[in-house]
């Protein structure tokens, strides 16, 4: 059974860039910062492409954001996704709004499976996938992983870690939990979020980058989707972590314990 897969592609700050908090604490300095496709979403795109290779179907990527979000959609299309949807919104977002917008796109597209990164590496909230499943009343499997290692033969052959049944009604998901792994079976349509060890995403090839230019990206103004675009959460203040102070050398364990108790107040 061919599968229709809806995958998220969020634009995030490249952690290799120098990230600085604005002096007034309202955000980060965006000048000189590079952006990239959220690595967890990259894994989601890779998983969708593998499922498509196995079952046939279509991979649709969706990104919510300003004009520049098209770059990340193109990156996902260059990996091999078939078409893109750009939900155009220039203001601030939170997971409540994001999941409401994604739910509208889901209702329009009617995919068999939505695959999202478990979180985005900018604010690490880890909520959009869960909210989305709840809004749609669908089953969810978060933190999808797999038994095979990323060095295994299955991984070299780019086999999917998610197992969709031949009749296309269920997906089996191995997920990481404290102290082990859990295997869930979820009825389709469903929402899955990806963890780090699900797969190693492919690099976009040069022919892939060129083909991506010709693929369709449909822009939908966020305001047209009938969703309350007011974030429920506002960022009050951002601050850089305190600079690490130089260490001191201690002569023996007694001195260490004394300093931990009297100076660091740690014991």
């Amino acid at each position: 059974m061919p599968l229709k897969l809806l995958v998220t592609a969020k634009r995030v700050e490249d952690p290799e860039s120098r990230i600085q908090v604005k002096p007034d604490g309202t955000g980060i300095v965006t000048e000189g910062v590079n952006y990239k496709l959220n690595p967890f979403d990259e894994i989601a795109v890779e998983e969708a492409l593998r499922l498509e290779e196995q079952h046939g179907g279509e991979v649709v990527v969706v990104s919510i954001g300003g004009a520049r979000a098209v770059t990340e959609l193109r990156a996902a299309l260059a990996m091999g996704a078939d078409r893109g949807i750009h939900v155009r919104h220039d203001g601030p977002l939170d997971p409540v709004v994001v999941s409401a917008l994604l739910a509208k796109v889901f209702e329009q597209e009617k995919p068999d499976l939505a695959i999202l990164g478990k979180q985005s590496i900018d604010d690490d909230q880890n909520q959009a996938g869960q909210y989305l499943a709840e809004r749609l009343g669908l089953g969810q499997a978060t933190f999808a992983s797999k038994h095979d290692s990323l060095e295994s033969e299955a991984e070299q052959k780019r086999l999917p870690g998610l197992a969709v049944s031949a009749d296309g009604t269920r997906v089996t998901v191995v997920r990481e939990v404290d102290g082990g792994v859990e295997t869930l079976e979820v009825r389709l349509p469903a929402v899955v979020t990806t963890d780090l060890r699900l797969n190693k995403p492919r690099f976009a090839s040069l022919p892939g980058i060129m083909k991506a230019k010709k693929k369709e990206i449909r822009e939908i103004p966020a305001a047209s989707l009938g969703v309350d675009l007011t974030p429920k959460v506002a960022v009050r203040k951002l601050a850089a972590p305190p600079a690490r102070k130089g260490g001191v050398k201690v002569a023996d364990v007694d001195e260490l314990v004394r300093k931990l108790r009297d100076e660091a107040k740690a014991v």
């Binding site: 770059t71 990156a75 690099f203």
Partner: peptide
């Protein structure tokens, strides 16, 4: 162009990661 830069990112990430 932007296309050159997209290709540049692929080469860089591939070199750094792999």
């Amino acid at each position: 162009t932007e296309d050159h830069q997209a290709f540049r990112r692929t080469v860089r990430e591939f070199c750094e990661r792999e």
